[in-house]
């Protein structure tokens, strides 16, 4: 059997999307699906340039990415130390790990009015909600990463008489890093979803606000073009994270 082309899987993936769009085009053209609910894919495609030029997509993109990165940085700076603390302190872990699991599973975006009251209608609210939705999975995966360090690696560090600081930087952290990265990936996914979601809900900020604006103007092709743009940004964002994770896995 000959070697499979590395382009086969992406070609199948792209072909499926194009096929689905073609079917949708047919269904809408035949008015089986109402064109007042879903515009023709060709109309969405045609409105891309208009949305980019007239609606200031680059600026809005920068706002959404900026909010996501700010929340992501906070997630990293707070989530990893929390995870490390709970790994080191068994009693605290027993007390708080269920809470973290509950927060990770909760739809925090529904509490956005509370955040609005606390932080006002500003980017700060969006960043805080993004942070709150992503910090728990990072902390949980950090605990898991440190706790699953193989016993033999600890024994190796002891046999080489490492100091506690050396053991942490040379053994524990590198061993836990792949799991921590999985947590960061999950946390950032939750963060981006919530950032865009809150931008829509409070009609403020970047790409989310644009979707809201276009929907209120009944500009359906523009709305779907903006949604497609968010999807494309997400794909790009997480493809980069996925690359980083695979790189770490190869080393783990």
């Amino acid at each position: 059997m000959g070697a499979r082309s590395p382009y086969l899987a992406p070609a199948i993936s792209l072909g499926t999307i194009v096929g689905a769009l073609a079917v949708m085009q047919g269904l809408i053209a035949a008015e089986i699906v109402s064109p007042y609910i879903v515009p023709l894919p060709t109309d969405i495609l045609a409105s891309f340039e208009r949305v980019v030029v007239e609606e200031g997509i680059p600026g809005r993109f920068a706002v959404t990415v900026g909010e996501t990165l700010a929340a992501g940085l906070l997630i990293m700076l707070v989530g990893i130390p929390i995870g490390l603390l709970l790994y080191r302190r068994a009693r605290l872990r027993t007390a708080f790990e269920p809470w973290l699991a509950a927060i990770a599973a909760a739809p925090l975006v529904l509490a956005y009015p509370l955040f609005l009251v606390l932080f006002g209608r500003s980017s700060l609210t969006i960043i805080v909600i993004g942070f709150a939705s992503g910090v728990a999975p990072v902390a949980l995966k950090t605990i898991e990463g440190f706790a699953s360090t193989r016993r033999v690696l600890i024994d190796v560090s002891r046999s080489f008489r490492l100091t506690p600081a050396q053991e942490f930087w040379q053994i524990l952290l590198p061993a836990a890093l792949p799991q921590i990265f999985v947590g960061l990936r999950l946390g950032l996914i939750f963060c981006l979803i919530n950032v865009v979601g809150v931008e829509v809900l409070i009609n403020l900020g970047g790409l989310g606000q644009l979707i809201n604006d276009l929907a209120e103007r009944y500009d359906l092709p523009g709305t779907y073009a903006a949604i497609s743009f968010v999807v494309l940004v997400s794909i790009l964002f997480f493809a980069i994270l996925g690359r980083g994770e695979k790189w770490l896995q190869r080393r783990g």
Binding site: R151, V152, D155
Partner: peptide, 10 residues
Amino acid sequence: FQEESTFPWR
């Protein structure tokens, strides 16, 4: 050690 104990990240 008996168990595989190399550092996979190095």
